[in-house]
Design a protein around this nucleic acid. Sequence first.
DNA 1: ATTCTTGCAAACGGTTTGCACATAC
DNA 2: GTATGTGCAAACCGTTTGCAAGAAT
Lengths: 148, 148
Amino acid sequence: MKMTRKQQDDFIAQCRAAGLSVTHQRLAIFEAVMANGNRHPSAEVIYQTVRERYPTISFNTIYKNLETFEELGIVVKVNPLYNEARYDVDVRPHHHLICRQCKTIVDVHDKKLDALPAPEEAGGGFQVENWTVQFTGLCAECQPVAVG
Amino acid sequence: MKMTRKQQDDFIAQCRAAGLSVTHQRLAIFEAVMANGNRHPSAEVIYQTVRERYPTISFNTIYKNLETFEELGIVVKVNPLYNEARYDVDVRPHHHLICRQCKTIVDVHDKKLDALPAPEEAGGGFQVENWTVQFTGLCAECQPVAVG
DNA sequence: ATTCTTGCAAACGGTTTGCACATAC
DNA sequence: GTATGTGCAAACCGTTTGCAAGAAT
């Protein structure tokens, strides 16, 4: 999963368009993100990958750049509620509205959504036990003060 | 959202059936969980709620009991990937298989799932921007060694 | 020359662990 | 009396911040 020349050029163009400096670190982090594309990597994974080539790189640089990449739309967080465990008393299968700003979670019980088909190809013997639809967006309170 | 006598009795029965001691703390935590049912509370929220009645209760006790409640099936974690941010290079709308054991995430692109209807009642003016289906279960590697 | 980025170190917040004391059974 | 649960404190881990030194433009 090596980065092509075109991917690199596109990335550089994207940086310039956004007014971002093109540093070796930033390029290496982008390459590491691409190289780990199918693994849904954490910052730690990116850090370890980049460190193979730049042993002195700082964790901070990884974090700052992942944040930057997200603003650019190059990557997206799989788990918006990554910072603390949240519990649900409703153990029946149902769905969630998640406000990306204030992290409010609202339950959704919708008949139409209950007719969801299982995924056709369950990714290499994956045994599905449960599923839920996560709607992300902005709650009523956060819409006026939204950033991004 | 006060707990009914029946709910309390059921809870006590459930504890006894599982061989768990019925402590004041455990009861109070259960009641706090129920009282915050629609808020999808974090451990901190539960802690603050219980502390109003038991000011000396320990955070540790909250954690241990939330864990216990999850094993009993009384509560469920909304966000299995709560401990660290995970990034996705694929920014197109798609879906995920998440292994509850090893936290592996596998992308799912499925035509059938793309025809998902928006929720009928968008919970008080919630503005939906995106959505994704999260299938949870066990990956092929974890099925033989699964706990729970 | 100026602006943006990096690296270091320290703080932070949520989570988890070890162990002595207390409680439920 | 024994097994289980609690409270305290400290460790832990991922994340975030402040700031001086360095690199990109």
